[in-house]
Nucleic acid binder design. Structure first.
Lengths: 192, 192
DNA sequence: CCCTCCCCTTAATCTACCTTAAGCGTATTT
DNA sequence: AAATACGCTTAAGGTAGATTAAGGGGAGGG
């Protein structure tokens, strides 16, 4: 299972045998049940999480109790609350498993160890964060400039593998609309 | 003027004399006029930009020709199109000066040189990107969960120094609403 | 295997926000 | 100093999307 973690780095700067060993000694493998939380509001986010199997949602809850999905993460994705992780501040988000999952987690201490001892890790984790930033800026743009229908079509295009695995209520929350309205959007699209 | 660049790093890991010298030799100082572009759509973003004086907007233009502001950057802020910069892809955004400005720019090559030769730069630029990510995720959350009035109030709170310097049309574009509706929001707030 | 809790959908009413159009004041340019 | 462009506002009418309420189907957990 840890091979999935290793091969994730092949997308960036691949790891050699020694680096894989170093990494393997610094991550913890965990099995997570459906609906289990790996981060709750007000807790400090103490790990970078790599998803080897399963699917998570990262979301915030407003004063009315409504959830707002900020990110989905499935196999091969990284997941963290970056502000909480680096500054050890209480998290404002929850991270919850949507499916049974297997993850690898690395602590801040161990991550810094990797950064300090090998520039390749440094570069790799930089690119991981940069990719998240690109994705997130795209979302801001879509949110301020596109209709719900356009955003739904963009979601389908960008995350086809998630479409069949997520209930529409979760997708609606991600798109920033109500499940009822997503239902209407989907119906209107079928007519076309 | 370059002292503003140096002292920006005091927010993270401060630079010593040798590091300042190294950095100074690798940045270019430029004076930018009002309405001048430092990045246009389809050009590759070749620099990280530090704003020492003045103010910029980073925006995207949709098919109807409408501008959508993704970021404002004033004194002490960093500015780049990260996807274009690292992957040398054509930019989808414009960066334009709203006021006459003085900036320092560093090329990818020189930035990598700093990364490779001193972990402190590495760490500093990582934090700069991480902070952008935190800010951008906040914006996504606001966009999908708050009303225009709430977003306007949050903007005032987060960027009070920008409020008096930006025309309301630009703020409206940042908030994802029309100038006419922002005008109404402001009127309604005054009544309260 | 049953029960309960999700999840999806439809439809009516309501509201936040957009569009268009027009008028006015103040910078910027010539 | 005139000309022009730009920014702010108001208001009427229109649309995207929220809210509320209700019913039916399917899956997970006991």
């Amino acid at each position: 299972m840890i091979d999935k973690l290793f091969s994730n780095f092949d997308n960036y700067l691949p790891l050699d045998a020694a680096e894989r060993e170093d990494l393997a000694g610094r991550v913890i493998e965990r099995k997570i049940k459906r609906r289990q939380f790996i981060l709750q509001e007000n807790d400090v986010c103490r790990h970078y999480t790599f998803v080897a199997e399963g699917c998570f949602k990262k979301f915030q809850v407003d004063d009315k109790g409504t959830e707002h999905n900020l990110q989905f993460a499935a196999e091969g994705d990284w997941l963290m609350e970056i502000g909480s992780f680096y500054f050890e501040k209480p998290s404002r988000v929850y991270i919850e498993a949507i499916e049974p999952a297997v993850i690898f987690q690395i602590s801040r201490q161990n991550l810094y160890h990797l950064y300090d001892n090998n520039p390749k890790f440094d570069r790799n984790f930089r690119v991981i964060v940069e990719n998240r930033l690109v994705e997130t800026e795209n979302r801001v743009l879509q949110a301020i400039s596109s209709t719900a229908e356009e955003r739904y079509l963009a979601f389908i295009k960008q995350y086809p593998h998630l479409l069949s695995r997520l209930p529409n209520t979760q997708i609606a929350s991600y798109l920033g609309i109500t499940p009822e309205f997503l239902s209407k959007v989907r119906k209107d699209l079928l007519k076309k």
